[in-house]
């Protein structure tokens, strides 16, 4: 298991999550958890995904997520889970 946290912030519109999920499905990245809040028109989403089975390198994946983000007017960020564990768990 290689857990990566994906965060998405932007203006809400139809199909945002579908676009991101399709990308993960096409690249053999399993979604473990999704949390989402929408305040007024803005969406704030966090996904925990397993990147251990994908052929894509981390830098390829972030580049492609950037491109998807540009298309749907959102910022998508992928980070190894460990930075959050380190900071928030003793």
């Amino acid at each position: 298991m290689n857990r990566t946290i994906v965060t998405l912030v932007g203006k809400d519109m139809v199909g945002i999550i579908a676009k991101v999920c399709t990308y993960f499905a096409e690249n053999n990245i399993n979604i473990l958890d999704i949390a989402q809040t929408t305040v007024q028109d803005f969406i704030n989403m966090m996904m925990i995904v397993d990147t251990s089975k994908t052929d894509k390198s981390f830098s390829q994946m972030t580049e492609e997520l950037d491109k998807i983000g540009d298309k749907i007017c959102c910022t998508i960020k992928a980070q190894h889970e460990e930075i959050f564990n380190m900071m928030h768990r003793v």
Partner: peptide
Amino acid sequence: MIDPYEVLETN
């Protein structure tokens, strides 16, 4: 499991 608020705080 990581909490969305913790992720938000870090970022």
